[in-house]
Design a protein around this nucleic acid. Sequence first.
DNA 1: CTGAAAGCGCTTACAG
DNA 2: CTGAAAGCGCTTACAG
Lengths: 326, 326
Amino acid sequence: MDRVLNERPGVRAVTIQKVQAAIEELGYVRDTAAANLARQKTYRFVFVLPDWKGQFLASLEKGISEIITNAPQDRTEVRTIRVPNHDHTELAATLAGLKPRDVDGLAIMAKETPLVRDAIADLSKRGIPVVSLVSDQPNSDRDHFVGIDNVAAGRTAGTLLGRFTGGRHGKVVVVITNKQSRDMIERRHGFDQVVSAEYAHLEPLPSVEGQEDPAHTEAVTLRALQQNKDVIGVYSVGASVQAIARAIASADLPQRPVLIDHELTENSSALLRDGVIDAIITQNTGHLARSALRVLRAKCDKTPVIKSQENIRIDIVLRENLTSMK
Amino acid sequence: MDRVLNERPGVRAVTIQKVQAAIEELGYVRDTAAANLARQKTYRFVFVLPDWKGQFLASLEKGISEIITNAPQDRTEVRTIRVPNHDHTELAATLAGLKPRDVDGLAIMAKETPLVRDAIADLSKRGIPVVSLVSDQPNSDRDHFVGIDNVAAGRTAGTLLGRFTGGRHGKVVVVITNKQSRDMIERRHGFDQVVSAEYAHLEPLPSVEGQEDPAHTEAVTLRALQQNKDVIGVYSVGASVQAIARAIASADLPQRPVLIDHELTENSSALLRDGVIDAIITQNTGHLARSALRVLRAKCDKTPVIKSQENIRIDIVLRENLTSMK
DNA sequence: CTGAAAGCGCTTACAG
DNA sequence: CTGAAAGCGCTTACAG
């Protein structure tokens, strides 16, 4: 029976028929807890993340490790590797070093480049399931994407900025991390869609890049703020919002701009509480981690993933519902 | 060893000491999956909900049953009882009929009345864990509340309405289900707090009651709309938003009022998509159901509840992030 | 009061 | 190719 359930080779068609008929008739549902108990196998997953120091990644990493320590019965081990994000040869080398005998699955968050795409294809060929995390790799052989629809997230930001500026005309400074990250591109795109269609009073400026460097982020933001007299809004797509807040403070604008940010962290929630940030659009890092783990396990077990369960929500946080976000 | 772990009577202090020392030393973590497997016991929980026909309750009920069918290994059975909410003698009778030998735990959503409070005290005395659901019973003996901070939810509504009306002056019609439900009272309170402190351009009117009756809701809303010339916002605290939308449509106002609603349902999401509702503040019914079940199980097992895990978020839904909410 | 056996629903070698 | 035994980490009667 086990051989049929787990689709193992060496079973005659007749037997399969018989067993499956019985399964059907009895309404059998496999008890996965018991299965895991008996099967002594442990899943070994690897998470490859960029090496920036931001709190978002720290929180994601914490989310992963908490799940593991809280459920040791799940028999899954996770290794997190932080790889420089600007140099993809190192990333590619890391991925190439992952052997099927040591690794049962990979979750990766990285810019979308040919080198990474090829490395993922290779992994896939070696039979290792791969999920992209936070920022998708849609043109690769990844098995699944764990993260939000970033176009919709950008549209949400646009709507909030449009409504919070209440019809006043003015420019919007847009600060991104870098121009190759899929999540950044998609958010900016969604933002522009909604602003041009519905909030004609807003004039978004070309994105400035923070490059994961707070000092640099502050400098380019300040410059953008000073070069444009009538800025009424700032959209922080994914850069250090503390740096942006500093730039806004030192720009000494006639009126505080509406500031919309992504990713709820300790820093951003403090700024939200203080009224510097008006709204934060975020995704729950605990959900991201859990979903990645669940999907990876499903791929290993060749079990279907339940789409609705793996849907990550786009959360909107204002000062008023901040504490409910935990 | 089992007798020590489960704090059963009839174990000598010396033995307890020895076993606990060993546990400490080995860093033992109990495998609950294996424990559940061995212990053939099933948990029998009862959910008592109001008998209105709204989609929110339907979704909550569906959430409960889905969890049960999706995880038969968890060995928990749930019976949902819908009880008329206006007559609390029937409710009290239902609760009085719950015997410890048939029921391992109760989740209840009801108005806060002395009759209910006493019935909960009684249950508690009989050793049945009780959690209040959605609307709290803070002055009762309930073991836990599963739901959002409704004051904060009301504050969120107030902020959204304040910002979306963008400084224009006008009145706000507030429609509630009834004046005894704790959740309604708290939301209205939070709403008033924030509006009076931060959005002086808004003038909220006294609440009108919909009484869980769409026709009546439509009538009272329409009357409020017509008696006040300069309504620029409507706050739907918990009544049928379809009825409210109909009232707005037939009131033929010079300008569409900003409409803020609670609870994401099929009806309300359709109205959000169509631009009739501007924002919905909601709580995930799946989370509510899961949390109630987890807490009840924890109470049965005399296991601590992990506070952060049981925190229910106040979700804000705009047209732009609607699809991500599933 | 305590030890040791049987069994929960599964999987994994191991005979046949 | 298939059946039956042993064992995963626990709990529950049942002897002692």
